[in-house]
Design a binder for these strands. Structure first.
Ligand code: ATP
Length: 738
DNA sequence: GCCGATTATCTTTTT
DNA sequence: GATAATCGGC
């Protein structure tokens, strides 16, 4: 084997073996270079699984001479796909790679773009997001007069999604339903699938479900894909669902060149249908599979690794994995107790500021992680007031914003007129005097005649729909007419969107509103046009449908700009696969993390929370901080007091005791004035800004953390490198800017 | 019937 | 602390 490779390298003169062996340890190399066939790389955090996967692709292309077009690489997020592609380009020293690196969902969408006909769908289908899917379910509950029996539409959607993950079709689901609740869901599921088809739309789960169905029923199509993609490589295999697994099985076919990498301890998407048995049963599913275990961690120091390993050892029934590092003991983990969320944020600022200076780190070397998106609000406050650059990734996505979805809805119905969901969305946006009652009339009229809603609108302009004054609806159809002409004449995407914004009256209505909110909305829709222009540049012969598809599947994670120096704030889920020199895991309170609803948590859910903690801890390279608060306002009331059980599962000897139980700083009294109906926070003149570096004669250098009082009574909280936190009167302290 | 404004509700994690 | 159901004025 080695001989063969050596010879190849010499004759081809590319990707010298030396560099490959330089960059991989023997185990990793074994995985990278083993001949195509079923291969499982099963290993703990930071052991280089993703790296091995990437190198294996490069190896296949350069050393084995495999045509890149025959390789299909699947990642968990679009961002991960993009990163892997970039790394491959660099490794192979190429500018263009005809190789597919994408998510299961993107891949499924591509299959459907080719073969929508065999499942009786039409061209230019829409892809519905979670909100739109739930909207359809709400409509069904209303129309069918189904008493949901306390089931919320979002809960119903969840059950339907899980069914699709398990490839259970609506009729099957309804027939096997035993409980009353399941029967109701089955009924809704049947109607939901019907309506999706009627609107020529798919939900996220359909993007896997239908391609698998197509493969099930059409051996010829399956054969085509098998011939095309002879080598499959899948990252984060522990978080694949049953439907995704079936897709892999289908595609693997006889050739069975399937490389999967994963770590059962990092499975954190069970709630979304991920099935850990996929990875645990790989050897059974693919007889003769080679298994490579990687044990050296290249990311974290020993303290961090020991702590994470001890924590995850509390889970039962896992496959234990050895993990070691040569990076040394490193710093101990610091636990910080704070009085409330506000002081938690300030503590982060304090630690970050010191560490940045003492270690010469960049802001982008830091990550702040949390369990729920809602926590980002209080966390960002301290950063904002201290002027520390940060970026929140995840949460509300750009393309999920109301104004963006409104504009895109216009584009969607131009592309897919059957998309009643989008028609309904913008028929009266901006307001043109067509209320809910009128829309209902047109909707009923349309349904009775098997027309889509848009066609119904045209009928209404001819006075065919009772109770609808033609002129108002004509205002709407005229806009659609004009836009249709533009799209038919091949108007470029960005200018088409600009026309939508103008002709729909959307822009005018926002300008007229003239509030701070309408201003940002205006900015956002302009950014949308810019984004479309950028998309056109990147993919010159792209169609509007392709743009809509990209927009439907893109994650907000892409917003992390590698060139800007900012602290990253994101959920623990979002941090999967990433690494940072310094990681703060926040909100470690019993109830919040682990997250517990209605006072109870199932053992398997608790284990998933623990895996999430494990994922979070193992993102850290050199410094790990864990914070928790004594009090936290959850939403309306309710506060936690107890520290998370996870903290007690971390061995004492990996913790820095100097920071255990740090005294909480007192709450800054908020000076709030009421004036009319608006609330202002007083912003008096300050001698120093929060975050400023200062010098004190006795205490030395420090950073301003907080400021209270005014003029003569101005008091600053300063964190000094020498003595820690102090409160001083500005008048007396004789502070100098440092 | 439509619209703007006020009240109630509810908040995990995401492709 | 943002969105959805509800209310009262036009
Ligand atoms: N042989 C090696 N030599 C030097 N650095 C390595 C080696 N293998 C991996 N690394 C580095 O270790 C870090 C972790 O690698 P990678 O992200 O591939 O691990 P992983 O197993 O996918 O991690 P996780 O499962 O925790 O996301 C990366 O910074 C990578 O560059």
């Amino acid at each position: 084997m080695h001989l063969y490779l050596e010879r190849n390298h010499i004759s081809l003169g590319i990707m010298p073996m030396l560099s490959l062996k330089d960059k991989l340890n023997p185990k990793q190399y074994e995985a990278v270079a083993c001949p195509p066939g079923p291969l499982l790389i099963f290993a703990g955090a930071g052991s280089g699984k993703t790296r091995v996967l990437t190198y294996r692709i490069a190896f296949m292309i350069k050393q084995l001479g495999i045509n890149p077009g025959e390789i299909l690489a699947v990642t968990f997020t679009n961002k991960a796909a993009q990163e892997m592609r970039e790394r491959l380009l660099k490794l192979l020293d190429m500018e263009y790679l005809p190789l597919l690196v994408l998510t299961f969902h993107s891949f499924g969408a591509r299959i459907l773009r080719e073969y929508y006909e065999v499942i009786s769908y039409k061209k230019n289908f829409s892809i519905y997001d979670e909100d739109e899917s739930i909207g359809i379910i709400k409509g069904i509950c209303k129309d069918l007069q189904i008493e949901e029996g306390g089931l919320k539409p979002s809960a119903i959607k969840h059950y339907i999604s899980r069914a699709k993950d398990e490839m259970i079709d609506p009729v099957e689901y309804a027939e096997s339903a035993n409980l009353h609740r399941q029967k109701i869901i089955g009924q809704i599921y049947i109607e939901y699938q019907k309506r999706l088809r009627l609107h020529n739309g798919f939900d996220f789960d359909d993007l896997i479900y239908w391609p698998v169905k197509i493969f099930d029923g059409h051996p010829d199509i399956l054969q085509f894909y098998r011939r095309h993609f002879k080598h499959l490589l899948i990252d984060e295999y522990q978080d694949t669902s049953i439907s995704q697994y079936q897709m892999v099985k289908h595609l693997a076919g006889e050739h069975k060149s399937v490389t999967v990498v994963g770590d059962d301890d990092q499975s954190i998407y069970g709630w979304r249908g991920a099935d850990i048995t996929n990875i645990l049963n790989f050897e059974r599913d693919f007889p003769g599979a080679k298994v490579v275990k990687l044990e050296q961690n290249y990311r974290s120091t020993q303290n961090i690794l020991s702590a994470a390993s001890a924590l995850i050892a509390n889970n039962l029934g896992r496959k234990s994995k050895a993990l070691w590092t040569s990076l040394g003991e490193g710093q101990r983990i610091k636990v910080i107790e704070c009085s409330d969320a506000e002081s938690e944020s300030l503590s982060l600022v304090e630690q970050l500021t010191h560490l940045r200076k003492s270690e010469g780190l960049k802001y982008s070397d830091f990550a702040v992680l949390y369990r729920t998106n809602a926590q980002s609000r209080s966390l960002e406050d301290g950063f904002r007031t201290s002027g520390i650059p940060y970026i929140i990734v995840g949460g509300l996505r750009f393309y999920e914003r109301m104004e963006i979805k409104d504009i895109l809805a216009y584009l969607k119905i131009l592309v897919n007129p059957d998309d009643n969901i989008s028609t309904q969305r913008i028929i009266n946006v901006p307001r043109r005097g067509i209320g809910d009652v009128s829309i209902d009339y047109i909707a009923n009229y349309s349904r009775e005649r098997n027309l889509n809603l848009l066609t119904g609108c045209y009928h209404a302009t001819e006075g065919k729909v009772d109770g609808i004054p033609a002129p108002k609806i004509k205002e709407f159809t005229k806009i659609i007419d004009k836009l249709s002409k533009l799209i038919d004449s091949g108007e470029p995407l960005a200018s088409l969107l600009a026309k939508i914004i103008e002709l729909s009256g959307y822009e005018a209505s926002l300008v007229a509103e003239a509030t701070p909110q309408s201003e940002t909305r205006l900015d956002n829709i302009k950014e949308l046009v810019d984004g479309a222009a950028e998309f056109e540049n990147r993919t010159p012969d792209a169609t509007p449908e392709q743009f809509l598809e990209e927009v439907a599947l893109i994650t907000d994670m892409d917003r992390r700009d590698p060139n800007s120096d900012a602290v990253t704030m994101m959920t623990l889920h979002g941090a999967k696969g990433l690494e940072f020199p310094v990681v703060f895991i926040t909100g470690l309170e019993e109830g919040l993390f682990p997250l517990i609803r209605d006072g109870q948590i199932a053992p398997k859910d608790l284990e998933e929370e623990r895996r999430l903690m494990y994922v979070g801890m193992t993102r850290a390279q050199r410094h790990l901080y864990l914070t928790h608060c004594r009090y936290r306002r959850h939403f309306n009331r309710s506060f936690f007091g107890k520290a998370s059980r996870f903290l007690s599962e971390i061995p004492e000897n990996t913790l820095d005791d100097a920071y255990v139980d740090l005294k909480p700083i007192s709450n800054r009294p908020k000076t709030k004035l009421r004036e009319g109906r608006y609330e202002f926070e007083a912003e008096p003149k300050r001698s120093f800004a929060i975050g400023a570096d200062v010098y004190h004669q006795k205490f030395g250098y420090g950073v301003i953390l907080g400021i209270e009082g005014n003029g003569e009574n101005e008091i600053v909280t300063i964190s000094f490198s020498s003595v820690g936190r102090k409160k001083l009167m500005v008048k007396m302290a004789g502070l100098k800017p440092a």
